[in-house]
Design a protein around this nucleic acid. Structure first.
Lengths: 226, 226
DNA sequence: CTTCCACAATCAAAATTCTCATCTATCGAT
DNA sequence: ATCGATAGATGAGAATTTTGATTGTGGAAG
């Protein structure tokens, strides 16, 4: 999954690049519009992130040229605060979305996924694995040696979090932040309930992975040693 | 509800100020740490937004001094990307939260509400009104001339959106963005279902406010003229 | 070794959200 | 005027999430 960033502010470009790489995208960065167009036309990218204000050639011109050549690659425009009128123009020329600076990394990532989905691209969520567990996060189900069971969204997010944090202990607060959002008033008991749901399903699957409680600290995934 | 912003980047400070004012907070801005401390100690603020990097005196020192004087005002630290280690230090000295730049305005507002809630401050959600309707959004219920009925969260958000947009027509897409998030795959029919729920409750309350459908455009609130 | 207490687990029930099938309304084309 | 197509409305039921009550458990304090 390869993404091109065309952004002249080196600082921002670098930050974007870091964020995307951390999320397993391959990233190329160029700092001016002329180069940007050349790279974009190469056709190897799965998505373009174009700043609107650029030296050389602005983002919308790149977009127009790309679309003029019949290329259908998803494009997201980055716009500075004052540029909101550009929004309309951008979308008219075939942008899939725009994000106004400043934006959070989560927002950007979500919009990238959304843009790809709209274009019918496969968003490759690689199967999450731990021990004998295999979690399919997009259409939530859990598989252990062929046997599988459906998870509901919250169960899936919880298990995903536990798997991603591997052997680290995950606190209830962290779980609440991830599953219910940071300013939620969700109760600790909610976490316990979903841990309980998951354990029940692990039992059903006869998995030899356990969710271990570290009292007053949190939860960890562990494999039964036999 | 009065908020002090201590932030040296004038551009950012101004943006923050705009956002907060738009959300009905009174805002004061100062650009260096020394002044920041003076203002903060005045005790008139309901919340402090402190940048960590500041000329004169850094945000954490302000925080320490304020807490040293026994003041319990909610404090949110603004941190630049590289400063994440500061996070721990900040929270140790009694910050209620921190936000890393860049952040979205929604995130900031949510964290402000969260910080105030944690401190037990009353978050004054002024009653939303339209015609004979009165919507209490925090503990969702809808009142018409004394008679009231409980709303569930989604109903409340939907009605709030319709009320805030007054006489403007609100499209299903806008509603989906607000209620389910912009990259959700929620169906149009969900909107129709909740519109239907709301209409049922309006009927029950014998309100003379209607939700009118504008075919293939969206929905508007209207008052029955008699 | 007990007692106590905070933390945790679990179950059942309630509340909310979402899905699906079916029905109705509107509008343009014939 | 009728037909067909598209958009919207609604009820019922399923799935999911949340709440509350109750029971269990480990470890600190006596």
């Amino acid at each position: 999954m390869r993404i091109l960033i065309v952004e002249d502010e080196e600082h921002l470009a670098e930050a974007l690049s870091q964020i995307l790489k951390k999320n397993r995208y391959s990233v190329d960065v160029v700092h001016d519009g002329e180069d940007g167009l050349d790279y974009a036309l190469s056709g190897i990218y799965d998505l373009l992130l174009l700043d609107i204000m650029l030296p050389g050639m602005d983002g919308i011109s790149i977009l127009k040229t790309v679309r003029g050549k019949g290329m259908d690659v998803p494009v997201i425009l980055l716009t500075a605060k004052g540029e909101i009128p550009d929004k309309i123009a951008g979308l008219d020329h075939g942008a899939d979305d725009y994000v106004a600076k400043p934006f959070s990394s989560d927002e950007l990532l979500a919009r990238i996924r959304a843009a790809m989905r709209r274009k019918g691209e496969v968003v490759p969520e690689d199967a999450l694995k731990f021990g004998d567990l295999e979690l399919n996060a997009s259409n939530p189900k859990l598989t252990v040696r062929g046997k599988e069971i459906k998870l509901n969204p919250k169960e899936s997010e919880l298990l995903e979090l536990l798997i991603l944090r591997k052997q680290a202990v995950t606190s209830k607060e962290q779980i609440i932040e991830k599953l219910w959002g940071f300013d939620s008033e969700a109760e600790h008991n909610n976490v316990e309930v979903y841990i309980s749901f998951l354990r029940k399903k692990l039992k059903f699957l006869a998995s030899d992975t356990r969710i271990t409680t570290i009292r007053s600290v949190g939860y960890v995934l562990e494999e039964d040693r036999e």
